[in-house]
């Protein structure tokens, strides 16, 4: 995975010695590195003491047959082979999750950005709106959601009551295999509060003086949006994109709660991690679940790598200009 865009470009190049002489460590350079490691000390401690052990353990387990109750047995690549050759449900879960990510992430981000812009400034009572719009996100993983979602998309739910006005008899959206995934996508969009808040925070990072200068130059509001807001917001958009992709691929709770932990009806909401969970804890195939986790890691890391590569072309950092 490449993380080029994150590396600090030789900043203020004029202050630095020419590139060929950087090989010889300058004292200030070493001091900077030393300071960096001090800043990173808690993180390094956490990485080596807490994070990395279980991760490596799961990598080992992915090459074993492990039923949790007895010691793991080494099976080589068998878990990985089974996944792609024999397991139809694995492929189903991959398909379901991909559709979910591809549809819900752009929708949610567009929604969050639009509302962040609408709620940024200019109207009275905005803090109240912001809070109200954020409320659904507070409920996102609550057990109450399973019931609430049926109240909206059930046979006698809100959506169908509205449709009935127009004489349309809607299906039971949550439990119809053809529409169930759609409602989960909407559930994801509904909890757009987190990216919205991050966008709001990002908008506030943009110095007001830029807008004042632009206004003096006669730029309209749309123009200001395109040439100031949008470019300066790209690191935040990028952040939300990368994180939402990672998080959506790992979506678990919503399907778990709404489908009562089955991924049903008829596997139509069988998210990848839900299937992984069922394998690990219900079928006692933790080795297989671990292998699935590493396949997912490779997929997500690949996509994140692509995201970072692409980011060179559209993300503008304040520190590299």
């Amino acid at each position: 995975m490449t993380t080029d865009s994150v590396a600090v470009e030789p900043r203020a190049a004029q202050l630095r010695p020419p590139a060929h002489r950087r090989e010889k460590k300058q004292p200030w350079k070493r001091r900077e590195a030393r300071t960096a490691y001090v800043f990173l000390a808690p993180w390094f401690l956490g990485l080596f003491a807490i994070t990395i052990g279980p991760i490596l353990a799961s990598l080992y387990l992915s090459f074993t047959e492990y039923n949790l109750l007895e010691d793991p047995k080494w099976v080589g690549w068998a878990n990985y082979a089974e996944m792609f050759t024999e397991d139809d449900r694995f492929l189903t879960s991959l398909k379901v999750t991909t559709i979910y990510v591809v549809v819900s992430v752009p929708m949610q981000l567009a929604f969050a950005l639009a509302l962040a812009l609408a709620l940024d400034r200019g109207l009275c009572g905005l803090p109240i709106y912001r809070s109200i719009y954020y409320l659904p996100s507070l409920l996102g993983g609550s057990v109450a959601i399973s019931i609430l979602w049926r109240k909206i998309f059930g046979t006698d739910g809100l959506v169908n009551s509205v449709l009935a006005i127009f004489g349309i008899q809607g299906p039971g959206w949550v439990t119809d295999p053809d529409t169930a995934l759609g409602t989960l996508i909407l559930l994801h969009v509904w909890t757009f509060g987190a990216p919205m808040v991050i966008f709001l925070a990002g908008l506030r990072q943009i110095p007001q003086s830029y807008y004042e200068a632009a206004a003096v130059d006669g730029a309209g509001r749309f123009r200001q949006f395109r040439s100031i807001t949008l470019p300066l917001l790209t690191p935040i958009i990028f952040f939300n994109l990368v994180l939402e992709v990672i998080k959506s691929f790992q979506s678990f709770t919503q399907s778990f709660i709404v489908s009562n932990g089955t991924g049903g009806p008829v596997d139509s909401t069988l998210f990848y991690t839900l299937y992984l969970y069922l394998k690990g804890f219900k079928s006692f195939e933790m080795g297989y679940a671990a292998a699935m986790a590493w396949v997912l890691l490779v997929i997500i890391a690949g996509l994140t790598g692509v995201n970072f590569l692409m980011s060179k072309y559209w993300v503008f950092y304040g520190d590299t200009k």
């Binding site: 995975m1 994070t51 991760i55 387990l61 804890f281 986790a293 997912l296 994140t304």
Partner: peptide
Amino acid sequence: LGSIMLPHHVTVVP
């Protein structure tokens, strides 16, 4: 970044 990419269900036992 990689440390947040692994589903936690498989690291929970270790």
